[in-house]
């Protein structure tokens, strides 16, 4: 009986870390009232070397405008394969974008950074408007953008 209990404890100890590889993370972007049409936003992640890892979300559906999200475009070549299934509507002036993901635990406290490029019709492009390291301690902290983004927060 004791050996059975011990083996159960061991299996639990071994299995739980394997299952706890992801966590729900909600990212919220609040825009300023910049007085223009809907903003295109690209949320993407770089690693500790600054190399592009992948895109989390693309707000704005027309690929021909992606060149204005210039840092993202430079890293991806504007490839829609990077954003299939993670593309939604642009975000209006003063509006809010909130996206919840199941993100890998290993992205946190490991040198990864989430970036947001922003662009608005007839207004200035704003590449890398927000760049926030993904850390567990940084959850809940609001970061202001330079031009269009009033605040960016992630929570988990």
């Amino acid at each position: 009986m004791k050996s059975l209990l011990a083996s159960l404890a061991l299996t639990t100890a071994l299995t739980v870390p394997g299952l706890a590889l992801a966590r729900p993370v909600t990212m919220t972007v609040n825009l300023n009232n910049y007085g223009g049409p809907g903003a295109y936003l690209a949320l993407y992640v770089t690693n500790s070397s600054g190399a592009y890892v992948g895109t989390l979300w693309m707000a704005g559906g027309r690929s021909r405008y992606y060149q204005h999200l210039s840092d993202w475009y430079r890293a991806t070549g504007g490839s829609t394969s990077q954003i299939n299934g993670i593309t939604g509507a642009s975000v209006g002036s003063g509006g809010q974008l909130q996206v919840t993901f199941e993100l890998a635990d290993t992205l946190f406290d490991a040198g990864y950074t989430v970036h947001i490029d922003a662009a608005v019709e007839n207004m200035r492009e704003s590449p890398n408007e927000v760049a926030v390291p993904l850390t567990t301690s940084g959850a809940g902290t609001t970061t202001r953008g330079r031009r269009y983004i009033a605040g960016f927060t992630y929570s988990m």
């Binding site: 559906g61 990077q82 299934g85 993670i86 993901f101 993100l103």
Partner: peptide, 24 residues
Amino acid sequence: NAAPAGTVAPPENGLFQGGVRPIV
């Protein structure tokens, strides 16, 4: 244009676990 969210699974870029679709 890219496939809108909800129509296909997210890209396998190592960020999304288990192909779970984001909720927006």
